[in-house]
Design a protein around this nucleic acid. Structure first.
Lengths: 117, 117
DNA sequence: TTAATACCTGCGAAAACATGCAGATTTGCA
DNA sequence: TGCAAATCTGCATGTTTTCGCAGGTATTAA
């Protein structure tokens, strides 16, 4: 198989992992540093088994890493720059049929680009 | 629904559209300008109905536009910058279990970043 | 008008995903 | 020891995507 095809396939994998609203929000929540499963579940208002499943998928694909401390499992992004890359994708969601007001997009961009320190 | 959630959902849509090896290659082939369906099918070695289906999905989501000339349908990217954004994603495919040699990644990056003029 | 080219649409089967929930595991603490 | 908190795993179900193919529409040319 030609190498461009292999690379395209691999790239598609990354896009597939990110192609889920929960996982996008997880990544943006983790952009500033590690958080544990419960915290994430509360912030995003999701059942914790779901958060756990998303994180384990992302871990299998080496997007996040786990650190255990007592009964808490803290997760962090292996390459935090991925959060910024995702935000860059906002450039391509304006001007699509589905009505998301520009103000929401701007708000999200601002929030998700906030200082990480 | 909180606006961040809406934005995340919309972003996920874009990722879903791109999350397919054929469509990634289509976008990269179109980065330099319009091409017709048959040309794309030949270059990518895909049955033309498949190319057509991919393009119609991308058109529905306003990633590409069509220009007809006789019996040829030429497609072009509405926002050509999306091709570069996708290439940026290559930063995140190294260091994953599936063995894609770095040289292939570099080759793809070079090819897909070639001058568009 | 017939034929050929270029492309599109619809459909059914298979594969991949998402979701909710029940039950297991590990750890901390009384 | 025994219970509760934090998380994980497995499974059944429903939904989306993908794929191949058959048949349809427009356009050009003989």
């Amino acid at each position: 198989m030609p190498s461009r095809q292999v690379v395209a396939k691999e790239l598609a994998e990354i896009f597939k992992i990110v192609a889920n609203p929960d996982r996008i929000r997880l990544i943006e929540e983790l952009r500033a540093g590690e958080k544990d499963v419960n915290t994430l579940a509360q912030i995003l208002d999701l059942p914790s088994p779901r958060v756990s499943q998303h994180l384990s998928l992302m871990r299998a694909h080496r997007l996040v890493e786990e650190r255990r401390d007592g009964r808490h499992h803290y997760y962090h992004l292996i390459q935090p720059e991925i959060a910024a890359w995702i935000v860059d994708g906002l450039d391509f969601i304006e001007g699509r049929m589905s009505g998301v007001p520009k103000s929401s997009i701007k708000a999200a961009r601002r929030l998700w680009s906030a200082s990480t320190s």
